[in-house]
C-alpha cells in the first residue's frame, strides 16, 4: 500500500506561489487581450464588409479547430525567434512567458469573439437605430451604446470562460514554464512525491475554480433580479 507523504508541501509553498503568480499573470493578460481582440473579431464578423467578415470567420474557425496545446507549442517555437529578430534581444532573454501570453490571447480571442458576437446580437436593433438617429457615427453607436450593453449581458459567460482559461494555463508545462501546475510537478518530481503534489495542485485548482464559479452564479442571480 502506497503511503501518502505530504511533508514536502510546506517547504515548497513559496515556489508554488511563484508559479501561481505566473498562472494568474497569464490568465489576466489573456483575458484582457482576448476580450479586446475578440471584440474586434466580433465586429469584423458582423461587418457588412464581406472581406472582413470572412477573415474573422476564418480566424475563429481555425483557432476553434486546433488543440490549444498545439497552438501553445507553435508559439513557443515561433514567437521567441521572431521577437529576438525584431527587437534584437539576446538569446538569454526568457520569452516563454511572453509567448505563452500571446498564444493564449490569440486562442481565447476566438472564443471571446463568439461570446461578444452573441452579446452584440442580444442588444435590440432599436438601440443602434436610436444612437444613429442622434447623429452618432456607426462605430460611435457601437462603442457608446451597443457594446456596453453587450458586455453587461455577456458578463457571466465572459467570466465562465475566464475560469476555463485559468485551468487551461496549466498547459504551459509544454514549455517547461513554471506556472502553478509546472511548479507543483517540478517539486513532486524532485522529491519523488509526484502523486501528493498533483493531488494538492488539483485540490487548489478545484477550490479556486469552484469558488469563482459560485461567485459568478451569485452575481448572475443578482443581475437577473
Amino acid at each position: 500500500m502506497y503511503q501518502l507523504d505530504w511533508s514536502s508541501i510546506p517547504g515548497a509553498l513559496p515556489f508554488l506561489w511563484q508559479g501561481m503568480k505566473i498562472s494568474l499573470e497569464i490568465t489576466l493578460v489573456a483575458i484582457a487581450a482576448g476580450i479586446f481582440w475578440g471584440t474586434i473579431l466580433a465586429l469584423m464578423r458582423l461587418s457588412p464588409v464581406r472581406a472582413l467578415s470572412l477573415l474573422a470567420t476564418g480566424y475563429v474557425s481555425l483557432f476553434r479547430s486546433i488543440p490549444l496545446v498545439m497552438v501553445l507549442l507553435w508559439f513557443f517555437l515561433v514567437v521567441p525567434t521572431l521577437l529576438r529578430d525584431v527587437l534584437g534581444l539576446s538569446h538569454a532573454t526568457d520569452l516563454r512567458l511572453a509567448s505563452a501570453m500571446v498564444g493564449f490571447a490569440l486562442f481565447e480571442a476566438a472564443y471571446y469573439s463568439e461570446i461578444m458576437r452573441a452579446g452584440i446580437q442580444s442588444v435590440s436593433r432599436g438601440q443602434a437605430q436610436a444612437a444613429l438617429a442622434l447623429g452618432m457615427r456607426p462605430l460611435q453607436a457601437m462603442w457608446l451604446v451597443v457594446l456596453p450593453q453587450a458586455f453587461r449581458n455577456m458578463l457571466p459567460l465572459l467570466l465562465t470562460q475566464a475560469i476555463i482559461l485559468f485551468q487551461d494555463t496549466s498547459l504551459v508545462y509544454v514549455s517547461a514554464l513554471a506556472d502553478f501546475f509546472g511548479a507543483a510537478y517540478k517539486v513532486g518530481d524532485r522529491d519523488g512525491r509526484l502523486v501528493e503534489m498533483l493531488l494538492f495542485a488539483g485540490a487548489v485548482y478545484f477550490v479556486i475554480c469552484s469558488a469563482a464559479s459560485f461567485a459568478v452564479r451569485r452575481f448572475q442571480r443578482r443581475l437577473a433580479a
Partner: peptide
C-alpha cells in the same frame, strides 16, 4: 448623414432610451 441626423430629431415607438 450623421451630421444631418443630429439636426433631425427622432422619437421611436419603443422609446429606445439607453438602459445602461
Amino acid at each position: 448623414l450623421p451630421k444631418l441626423r443630429a439636426r433631425v430629431g427622432m422619437v421611436f415607438q419603443h422609446f429606445d432610451l439607453f438602459p445602461h
